[in-house]
Design a protein around this nucleic acid. Structure first.
Length: 221
DNA sequence: CACCAGGCAAGTA
DNA sequence: TACTTGCATGGT
């Protein structure tokens, strides 16, 4: 399958995408069995290694707490204890409670209904939750609600600025626009692209900043 | 020992 | 608007 693009930026982005895909293969994000697990994981992974998030999610699953009703009833102190391995556990427990309350109050606890809501309304609702910022909200939109929004993270920022596709001090919205202005609204593409940026950033951008090994030419130069 | 991980909010000027 | 700081465990 070939992605259609008309702009030079779009072709450049797709070249980077192809290089990363060839090198690492499909990443298959998001690693979750249910939309709720995806959303909980999105909060837990904020500035945190995914391995630690898996420990926290495993703890919740083992206790049978990974349902909306159980999380709603679970005391925040107990929730904090369960998500301890993910770090920032007091903050994240409260943020999860905030998200759960939002789903209960705005959608009556009906997750499928929430995920079918209009994109802008859902996004602004999520951003109104204390602890849900633009990356977490967009991750939920892309990987749980399957909306064509591009997720921007620190690796995305680093990659675009090093390729001179964005300013070093570009805002979240500006970085997001680089992708959405140049690429078609393709959900599977956006899902895989973001995952590959993270995968590539982990491998090369910090520990091994070597251009000749990087699948994306020009990164870390 | 230092450094970092798939952010975010609150405080300051 | 544009910085700075706190939050915290676990791996390298």
């Amino acid at each position: 399958m070939t992605i259609q693009t008309s702009s030079p930026t779009g072709r450049r982005l797709l070249t980077m995408y192809d290089s990363m895909l060839d090198h690492f293969g499909p990443q298959g994000w998001w690693p979750a069995q249910t939309p709720l697990e995806m959303m909980v994981g999105a909060v837990l992974t904020q500035n945190t290694n995914w391995g630690n998030v898996e420990k926290a999610l495993g703890s919740l699953k083992k206790g049978g707490e990974l349902t909306l009703e159980r999380l709603h009833r679970l005391p925040v102190e107990s929730l904090a204890d369960a998500v301890r391995p993910a770090g920032y556990f007091n903050i994240k427990a409260q943020r999860l409670k905030n998200l759960i309350r939002f789903m209960m109050e705005a959608y009556g606890g009906d997750i499928p209904r929430m995920l079918e809501d209009e994109s802008r309304r859902l996004r602004s609702g999520l951003l109104g939750v204390k602890g849900i910022g633009p990356e977490t909200a967009d991750s939920i939109l892309l990987y749980a609600a399957f909306r064509p929004v591009f997720v921007v993270d620190t690796y995305t920022h680093r990659m675009l600025s090093r390729h001179d596709l964005a300013d070093e001090q570009a805002s979240y919205d500006e970085l997001q626009a680089v992708f959405t202005d140049a690429l078609p609204e393709d959900v599977p593409l956006f899902q895989e692209f973001h995952a590959l940026i993270v995968r590539t950033g982990k491998e090369y951008c910090r520990k091994k900043p070597l251009c000749d090994l990087c699948p994306v030419r020009g990164v870390d130069r």
